[in-house]
């Protein structure tokens, strides 16, 4: 359980009292989404823009004292999948051949596309990971809510975050219960137990949803999620977003 919290679950990392950690979540969302957009929207082989994006991300990580290891561990979950898809491109692009691997030719343009996709994927992933490392999930959700993201979506996100661990824990218990009765499916027919487990989990989750709704009603819920103190943007937030945009936008326009 605690392992899930540390890695897949994310959560703030680094020096939690650092300046970037204390910024308004909206500033961090805008800043890091801007980095992603600039990185992703550049044409092929715009290396200087990606270098600048990388430097900005490194600077943010340094300011928040987020260890490189944390970023690596969390990015590792997504990144290989994205890059795997791109890895085939050099073999199927036409153009100038730079190397041959048996019957397959590696084209120069293909390599450039691979490099570009890899760079874009890395920038996007690291931005998201970094946002998660310097902002807690509840803060991100509050930020999105204040930025007029439809309330239904933010509510779903909030509940999902809250109950993900509860449901994962239930699933883990059911799996150990199966395993402790020597359940090791070898044929497709034996997998039926998994289907029953899935439907049991669904039913449990459904009735939990009902109980939660009752608990909400019991405390006077009337269809509107109340909010505590509103978020306030400070000068530091403007400086953070301003610095990122000033560094990246000119480069993006030139390239």
């Amino acid at each position: 359980m605690s392992g899930a919290h540390d890695h897949a679950g994310g959560g703030p990392a680094g020096d939690l009292s650092s300046r970037v950690h204390r910024l308004d979540p909206r500033a961090k969302i805008v800043g890091l989404v801007a980095v992603t957009l600039v990185g992703v929207s550049t044409p092929i082989a715009a290396w200087e823009v990606w270098l600048a994006c990388g430097l900005v991300l490194a600077a943010v990580a340094a300011a928040g004292r987020v260890p490189a290891r944390v970023i690596w561990v969390r990015a590792r979950v997504v990144l290989p999948l994205v890059i795997l898809v791109a890895a085939f491109i050099p073999f199927f692009r036409g153009g100038e051949v730079v190397a041959s691997l048996g019957p397959l030719d590696v084209s120069r343009e293909g390599l450039e596309v691979l490099g570009s996709v890899a760079a874009k994927a890395t920038i996007g992933t690291v931005s998201a990971v970094l946002l998660g490392a310097i902002t807690s999930v509840p803060a991100i959700i509050r930020g999105l809510e204040t930025m007029r993201v439809p309330r239904l979506l933010t509510l779903i996100a909030a509940f999902m975050y809250r109950y993900l661990f509860v449901i994962a824990e239930e699933l883990r218990r059911m799996r150990s219960a199966l395993a402790s009765r020597a359940y090791r499916p070898r044929t497709a027919l034996q997998a039926a137990a998994l289907g029953r487990m899935a439907s049991a989990l669904f039913l449990r989750t459904f009735s939990r949803g009902e109980r939660i709704y009752l608990a909400m009603l019991a405390r006077g819920y009337s269809g509107r999620m109340p909010r505590l103190d509103p978020l306030r943007l400070a000068r530091a937030d403007a400086v953070f977003v301003g610095l990122i945009l000033l560094t990246l936008l000119p480069l993006r326009v030139i390239s």
């Binding site: 509840p138 809250r162 509860v166 109980r211 405390r219 006077g220 819920y221 109340p226 505590l228």
Partner: peptide
């Protein structure tokens, strides 16, 4: 786990009074 549905303890305890 049914009663605590907000992302943080503080927000959860504030839920009732805010609804009032």
């Amino acid at each position: 786990d049914d009663q605590l549905f907000m992302p943080t303890v503080h927000e959860d305890v504030a839920f009732g009074p805010l609804n009032m």
